[in-house]
């Protein structure tokens, strides 16, 4: 009986088996959907100014208060989410798109191939990523998607370092050899057996890397490389709040909430999956 229950439990990802994990994952999904759809339900336009009600605290009219030119922070906070959420997702796709094939090839071939790829990953990993990203912005301009793709490249090296061990131990399973004896080609073996057995650590890393991407985007916006006024961005809102910190400190609260929530959602989902999210090389600035 217990073995049947076990078999059923295997269907549920580990991080959904604890309340913290469910909360983290739920929060992420809620925020993601809310931000992507914000333009259709937000109470005010992001550029709409109420010059009488500037730098106001939270009220029934402006739920999270207003900024220095009287724009509704609630609308701005949610609208600001859409771009980072999408750009970070693209970054995650690039990171895994580069990282996973290299991981699978290195794990399959071993020997010199693995050594060469490992060296390359190590090299990339010791690049100071924030500086590289600023240089990229300086060179190609403030274009969030290409810049985040470059960040994805840097992150792929860290993914390699974390997941290569998982991939190699997954290939130790005799059912991999059995499939090869069946006459299954290399790509099919990887897709049908190796990758699925790595699903859990991949999901954990994706959540962590996604959260890191959000923090990086906010950091860049904080430095002034956001979508540009009057478009809202979390990072710039923090900057704005810090400029006005003497006369209206409450602005820090809403501007903080979103990046925090996302970072924490990913972190929590990752941690509750049973592994400490330890991420060499990539980490929120």
């Amino acid at each position: 009986m217990s073995s049947i229950r076990q078999a059923k439990q295997q269907r549920i990802p580990a991080f959904l088996r604890s309340w913290g994990g469910v909360f983290g994952a739920g929060w992420l999904i809620f925020m993601f959907l809310a931000s992507i759809t914000a333009r259709w339900w937000r109470p005010y336009d992001v550029a709409e100014q109420d010059l009488i009600a500037r730098l106001q605290g939270p009220s029934s009219e402006y739920w999270l208060g207003t900024d220095a030119v009287g724009r509704d922070l609630f609308s701005r906070v949610f609208t600001a989410g859409a771009l980072p959420l999408q750009a970070s997702a693209v970054m995650v796709l690039v990171a895994f798109g580069i990282g996973l094939p290299l991981i699978l090839i290195a794990a399959e071939r071993g020997g010199r191939v693995e050594e060469a790829i490992g060296r390359f990953a190590e090299t990339i990993m010791s690049l100071p990523s924030t500086v590289i990203l600023l240089a990229a912005i300086g060179a190609i301009g403030n274009r969030i998607y290409p810049v985040m793709m470059i960040f994805g490249l840097l992150v792929s090296a860290a993914l390699y370092r974390i997941l290569i061990g998982v991939a190699k131990s997954s290939r130790q399973h005799l059912y991999i050899d059995a499939a090869r004896v069946d006459g299954m080609g290399s790509i099919r073996v990887n897709l049908a057996h190796v990758l699925p057995s790595m699903a859990r650590p991949i999901a954990v890393q994706a959540a962590i890397v996604y959260a890191i991407g959000l923090l990086i985007i906010n950091g860049l916006a904080f430095l002034g490389f956001g979508p540009g006024e009057p478009q809202p961005s979390w990072g710039f809102m923090i900057k704005d709040a810090s400029d006005n910190i003497f006369n209206s400190p409450w602005m820090m609260v809403p501007s903080r909430r979103r990046p925090l929530a996302h970072g924490h959602g990913g972190e929590c989902a990752g941690r509750c999956a049973g592994r400490t999210p330890r991420h060499p090389g990539v980490h929120p600035p």
């Binding site: 295997q10 130790q172 399973h173 005799l174 059912y175 050899d177 059995a178 057995s197």
Partner: peptide, 9 residues
Amino acid sequence: DPYSSLNPA
């Protein structure tokens, strides 16, 4: 090893 030679999933 019959525990490793069958894919548990």
